[in-house]
Every structure is written in structure tokens, then in C-alpha cells.
């Protein structure tokens, strides 16, 4: 069985780092991992994604997967979850941060994009949906940099990923600077 994970958001939100941590956890458990992500021009405020595949042995032949194949979508922004929703398999899980990121184009058009209609749409389409108020939790934890670990923590607790919160905490400790360990551990263990 192959675990297909899709992370999406807006350039600069930290999807790439999260994908690396998921990969590290899976490898620690002896799984093979492949991933593919957006690098380059689109990182400057564009829509970004990471495809991530985890399996035992040598089953994975490509880092990318097709529509209808993701077991879980971890979305850092509501509209980006909607944009990538066609990749979700039937009965798949969506974890979404509720805070919208307004693009310059929307500000110019004086659009009032606020993410609410995206969340409404997701709730009608996705059975296994968890909306995370990342902004509020970040304030509670005292740092806007905790968002990626909060979302990953929720994703791990959903049971779709092949490792536990403790595994994620251990992998995080090996990959971040010592001064950020405490914050990230709180974020990963946060009960939504």
C-alpha cells in the first residue's frame, strides 16, 4: 500500500519544510519515500504544493500521483485546499488552516476574498474535514512560525500517516535549531 499525501499552500508558508519532516519520520520507520514540490518563481506568493508518497520496499515508481489518489490533503490556506481538492481520494481526509492569504490580484480588484466560502465549500464536499484556526493557536503559542507544526500535529492525530506524534516530535528535534524545539513540540502536541 502506498500512502499519498498532498501539502498545499502559498509560497512562504512552510509547506516544503513540513514535507521534509514527514519524509524523515517515515524513513525512520523504515519506509521508502518520494516527494515532489514547487520550487522557483511560483514560490514568490504563488500556489505551492508538495506531493509525498510513503510505502514499504520499492513500490513507489514516481513522486507524483494523479487526481483522486491523495489519502490526505494538508492545506495551509483555504483556497489552496479547494484548488487541489480533485487530488483527494473518496473518503480522504482534509486538514485546512482557516486563515486566508489574500493575493495582490484580489486586493487590486477590491475583492473581499476572506476564505469563508472556501471553507463552506469544503464542508459540503469533504466528510473527513478538520478546520484548524492556525492564527489563534499561533497567537496562543506565541509565534506565527508554529503553523506548519500545528497542522502536521493535527494530520498525525488523524491516523492517516504511518507514524505517531512522538515519532514526529523526535524527527522534529533532529531537524530544527535547539531554541525552536520547545515551541514546535507544543505545536505538534496541540489538541485542537
Amino acid at each position: 500500500m502506498i500512502n499519498n499525501i498532498l501539502l498545499c499552500g502559498v509560497g512562504g508558508q512552510g509547506t516544503v519544510l513540513t514535507s521534509k519532516l514527514v519524509a524523515a519520520c517515515a524513513m525512520e520507520k523504515g519506509f521508502s519515500v518520494m516527494s515532489a514540490e514547487t520550487i522557483g518563481m511560483a514560490q514568490k506568493g504563488g500556489s505551492v504544493f508538495s506531493f509525498l508518497r510513503i510505502a514499504e520496499g520499492e513500490q513507489i515508481c514516481t513522486p507524483m500521483f494523479g487526481t483522486g489518489m491523495a489519502d490526505i490533503i494538508i492545506a495551509f490556506e483555504p483556497a489552496e485546499a479547494v484548488r487541489m481538492l480533485s487530488y483527494l481520494r473518496k473518503d480522504g481526509t482534509v486538514i485546512v488552516n482557516s486563515r486566508p492569504v489574500m493575493p495582490v490580484t484580489a486586493a487590486l480588484k477590491a475583492s473581499d476574498y476572506n476564505g469563508k466560502e472556501m471553507l463552506d465549500y469544503l464542508s459540503t464536499k469533504v466528510g473527513n474535514l478538520t478546520v484548524v484556526d492556525g492564527d489563534r493557536i499561533c497567537r496562543e503559542l506565541g509565534s506565527p512560525r508554529a503553523l506548519n507544526m500545528i497542522l502536521l500535529g493535527v494530520a498525525v492525530k488523524s491516523g492517516v500517516l504511518p507514524f505517531t506524534t512522538d515519532d514526529a516530535v523526535e524527527a522534529m528535534k533532529r531537524s530544527v535549531k535547539p531554541q525552536f524545539i520547545e515551541l514546535n513540540e507544543k505545536a505538534l502536541r496541540y489538541e485542537v
Binding site: 506568493g45 495582490v104 490580484t105 484580489a106 475583492s111 472556501m118 465549500y121
Partner: peptide, 14 residues
């Protein structure tokens, strides 16, 4: 994806 809300366009920007 029926009745999907209009998605914000995100061209790369300075």
C-alpha cells in the same frame, strides 16, 4: 467540482 467558488489567482509577485 460543481459550484466550486471562484479561486483567487496567485501569479508570482515581487
Amino acid at each position: 467540482p460543481d459550484a466550486q467558488p471562484e479561486l483567487p489567482v496567485r501569479p508570482p509577485v515581487l
